[in-house]
Design a protein around this nucleic acid. Structure first.
Lengths: 246, 246
DNA sequence: CTTGACATACGCACTAGTTCGTACATTTTA
DNA sequence: TAAAATGTACGAACTAGTGCGTATGTCAAG
């Protein structure tokens, strides 16, 4: 089997063995695919679990050391499996990185979708949206770091992945709807661009996490303290709202 | 000469050969230090210029590839000088990176200092400060990228450098003074924490540059367009001011 | 229901190439 | 001439990627 054949196989295989229901818990997957009980010392094939395991470890490695700084050998060592498997499933270091990136994006996509905001009054809807964004970034530092790393690489990998490119549009539509309703109702007086507003919110929430270390070092302030978090969450919401009301 | 001795020497040497006036243009340095005209094909020793040259190239390399991704050989090749000189002056790859980082911080420090804001009315003073921050980040993407890289490395190098740690405090004092004056004059009603306000401003200005590529890719928007820039500059200023007035 | 054939899943040990760093020699300057 | 500055060529260690052999699951034929 040549390299090219193998790579092609890997991609097909990756797509087919991890269908829509990626978010299944490991245990569920195991129960589903493992018809026979685990042998004493014999190997038991479990592709899904192996791939998820590799992705978990790789995410940790890449988020702490960057793409160039992350070591394939280090990942292999922390895995239940071997380096050969990394190349079997993901073809290359970059392929692995891309898979990590895509999985991270796929995870957050689901979270952003169902937020029933259309029946809330505009101001309250916006506050809920801001809270959600804030807490999302806070809860997913891995995602934030991956995005930072992508920016250092000029978003080169993101560009290559259609899966990632057509994303995030839903947030903009949500914001646009809220702004329209707010202006119509007279609670907001400023006609603002929804993408700009998204950026204003996102920048603050993202920065708090992405620049945690340098900011903390310079100003000797721990941004993860509960009080600080609450104050910041209130501040960005108030700033956005008062901006729209002016 | 052992490695340790050499490192120590390098540091001393670096400090002594590049005194206070780092920001002199290359041409100036050349004219100052070069008493004799440049020989036809003979070598001419010029430590300052050599070091500056290395730092320029290294900045470019590290900001485009990160610390781990940056190659010493690649830097050496783009330099007027050789790899030997990099190790002669900076001891190691990390030493070089730290020098790059310190120089970047030193450059912005000078810019932040003299902004005569105390005789302006509070609101206008704040607008000038925000404009300055905005334009600074916009004009120094290298600095922004280095800070991003530092955050990926948990600010490990910043922590080791006293030069960097005691910085940025002046901005906070400036903001604190403006806020106090504003509250006293009645133009601001909210008693806000100056560090929080600095973060609100900095987050937006920084994010625009640091996340330019991913944001641009997802929302198909070029953040460096003049119109967009002006609109954003106005937005962050209005948002901060209206926040303080509420 | 057993057997055998074939595709998938996995691991060990190795290699080719890269990358940081250095030993040694040479030139410039004071 | 001594000390500082510079250039060349090389090596040890690391790192991404692979060759090859083995184990496991599945499915069809007997």
């Amino acid at each position: 089997m040549t390299l090219e054949q193998m790579r092609k196989f890997d991609v097909d295989n990756r797509l087919s063995t991890r269908p829509v229901s990626v978010s299944m818990a490991d245990e569920t997957v195991k129960a589903d695919s493992g018809m026979a009980a685990k042998r004493e010392n014999g190997r038991k094939n479990d592709p899904q679990r192996t791939q998820e395991d590799i992705l978990d470890v790789a995410t940790e490695e890449f988020t702490t050391h960057g793409l160039a700084g992350g070591r394939v050998d280090a990942i292999a060592e922390k895995t239940r499996t071997s380096k050969r498997m990394i190349y079997y499933y993901f073809g290359s270091k970059e392929g692995l990185y891309l898979a990590v990136l895509e999985r991270a994006y796929r995870k957050i996509r689901t979270l952003e979708e169902d937020l029933q905001l259309s029946n809330l009054p505009p101001e309250q809807a916006l506050r809920v949206l801001i809270s959600t964004t804030f807490e999302h970034d806070e809860a997913n530092p891995d995602f934030v770091r991956l995005v930072s790393i992508e920016n250092i690489h000029h978003a080169a990998h993101m560009l290559r992945s259609e899966a990632i490119r057509d994303l995030n549009v839903s947030v903009i539509e949500t914001i646009a709807a809220i702004l329209d309703r707010g202006v119509a109702a007279g609670v907001f007086v400023r006609k603002a661009d929804p993408i700009d507003i998204h950026m204003l919110i996102s920048a603050f929430c993202f920065f708090r996490v992405s620049n945690r270390y340098t900011f903390g070092t310079i100003f000797r302030r721990d941004l993860s303290e509960p009080e600080t978090m609450e104050r910041h969450k209130g501040m960005i919401a108030d700033a956005v709202i008062s901006y729209l009301k002016t």
